[in-house]
Write a protein that binds this DNA or RNA. Structure first.
Lengths: 361, 361
DNA sequence: TTGTAGGCGTTATCAA
DNA sequence: TTGATAACGCCTACAA
């Protein structure tokens, strides 16, 4: 069969109509300077007339060995990515860097039930960016098998893989130290998730020990660092796993904490949305923030500053995280080595934290 | 040159190593039942050893004439999509439907300065989904040129293009009628954007007449319908264009409205984020919501119910909108016609609206 | 159960 | 300035 005689017009179809070669038609699109303007116009005109949609990106990608796309995986069902502002801002960073370079981003789903690696094997991309993929996740192995430039953000490091992170533990420590320095001695803690399961409930030593989620794990360890150093009885500190980063999850978790120890004067939350939920739970319990209860978050999403009172939190450069990941991938695409980048965090004191009313140690 | 002798291993490389044909190696991956388990294992083992990454998705896509991906365009710089909860929920709908089908979604950037259509021409996708792309946008033309199944959400309709929308005008009318029925007679209005420019300022008749953004346009017309019918002097109603759907934009716009007419007892906002901003502006101006000022939004994002007071708004099925769009594209992919779907809206009365204190007409 | 051959639509190279 | 040719890596009848 003669090529280009299918139903969809191709380069060949146009070439035959105009009476030139495929190469010339290709040049009309990709190298206008390689042919006379008159011929080019004739070709483009014929293409319009024939309904030719322009060079097929799939074929072109095969030939050029590049897709102009990077694949993004978030360590949770994709639907979650659009609910969590922190994840959203991270994606924004990638999008922003990609927009500058004209690169699109492919959001790769990992359906919970099915084989989550199928989409990874089938992704037409030049590189991968993984966000919050826990250690030992099959997704990580599947990505590595593609042998494409890969950046991991807040997740398991690996040989030949670029890495972007923040100082989770140090940041959390700062938040706790801030509250200690205000005079607080009885704390409650809310964390999102320590493992891949969606467990909700109190966290004991074993659970923390076996935690796989590097983010919540690191932050919880940071809280512990500061509280232990301040002389708190760690085993008496109520720690509640919320199951997710959601506002409602934060309400429920904070309720559990306040129930476990009504005497807490401060709540440390793993993320801003949880903290916002904790503030709401406090209000429902008749406690004013910060007069009766201090609350600190983590991330500094825009909502944190807009809340009432505005939330004290650990600011991390969410958008920059995405931009950095994109940059590291590009470096590898250009033949460079896999680098690791650590981004700074910063304590932002706002209105949700204050000295406890009863300063009793 | 013998194929498969490049730097990256291919089917050929593996075939030679094992001493079988390319076809057999291909079958080892795609049709396990077409060859003996023993041979299959030998092949997979050799592939591992050689560092073969599995069948190349680009080549496979070319051969199969399908990408397993649908391209998504949001009618604004991509970075915006991750800030706006309503857009996020829409994307979630697409992601959710795609997750079920194992389809990935390609987020296509349209860089403001550059040629926004380049990425569209280069997208390796089976279909397109456009969100809030205004009429006459070059993006729309570029997508049509690809001659791929396309669904338009809340945007310009077109021949052979599937369409998903809600009753913007009717929904807005309901919101306004609700306030009228409560006894309000003096209104202020905040809309996001009426055109592609990022104009901020009061809206006059000419601006409304020439509005291209179907969303804000339709909603504003709905407000007018109800207010005019209620006997309000439309020309005296302060209408402010906020420039975007952001919280801060809402604060600024509401301030302008309250300044233009301090006597307004109710503010109608084009979207929930704007309404939330208006509530904040009211608080800053010393007005209590809803006692001194009623505020109504549009969309019913999760934040609306969480606000204090919870926001009265027009609920639209945001996630379902994405799911519907995806479904329509799949129907076309299966050879079906381009359909149009209208999703229902519903007034949700919460705590941000109440009768005005002085019920004077 | 395995192999052969052709083609998917494009672009780079080199020659005319 | 234009054309012929050869990959790019894979899948699928069809034949053995």
């Amino acid at each position: 069969m003669i090529p280009g005689v299918g139903d969809r017009p191709t380069l060949q179809t146009v070439a035959e109509a105009v009476g030139v070669s495929r190469a010339t038609v290709s040049n009309a699109y990709n190298r206008p300077d390689q042919l006379s303007p008159a011929l080019r116009e004739r070709i483009l005109e014929a293409a319009r007339r024939l309904g030719y949609a322009g060079p097929d990106p799939a074929a072109r990608g095969l030939r050029l060995r590049q897709a102009g796309t990077i694949g993004v995986l978030v360590g949770a069902p994709l639907t979650y990515a659009f609910r969590d502002p922190a994840t959203g801002l991270f994606l924004e960073g990638i999008a922003r860097a990609g927009e500058r370079a004209g690169t699109a981003m492919l959001l790769i789903p990992s359906p919970p039930g099915e084989d989550p690696t199928a989409a990874i094997r089938g992704a037409v991309v030049d590189g991968f960016c993984l966000n919050c993929v826990p250690e030992g996740d099959p997704v990580f192995a599947a990505v590595r098998e593609r042998r494409l430039p890969t950046a991991v953000v807040e997740g398991a490091a690996g040989e030949g893989v670029a890495h972007v992170d923040i100082d989770q533990r140090g940041g959390a420590r700062q938040a706790a130290e801030h509250l200690v320095s205000l005079g607080h001695r009885r704390f409650g803690i809310v964390v999102a998730r320590l493992a891949g399961d969606r467990r909700i409930g109190p966290v004991d030593a074993a659970r923390l020990e076996s935690a796989l989620q590097p983010v919540s794990r690191g932050r919880l360890l940071g809280y512990r660092d500061a509280l232990v150093r301040a002389g708190a009885d760690w085993d008496a500190v109520p720690v509640q796993e919320a199951g997710s980063h959601g506002f409602d999850a934060g309400i429920a978790a904070a309720r559990a904490v306040l129930e476990a120890d009504p005497g807490v004067t401060a709540i440390l939350a793993d993320s801003d949305l949880l903290a916002l939920g904790a503030m709401r739970a406090a209000a429902e319990a008749g406690r004013r923030v910060p007069a009766d209860l201090s609350v600190a978050g983590f991330d500094d999403i825009p909502l944190a500053a807009q809340a009432q009172p505005p939330l004290t939190t650990i600011a991390q450069p969410l958008v920059e995280k995405g931009e950095a990941a994109y940059r590291l991938i590009q470096e590898m695409l250009a033949g460079g080595p896999a680098r690791a980048v650590q981004l700074p965090v910063e304590l932002v004191v706002r209105g949700s934290t204050a000295p406890p009313v009863t300063g009793a140690p």
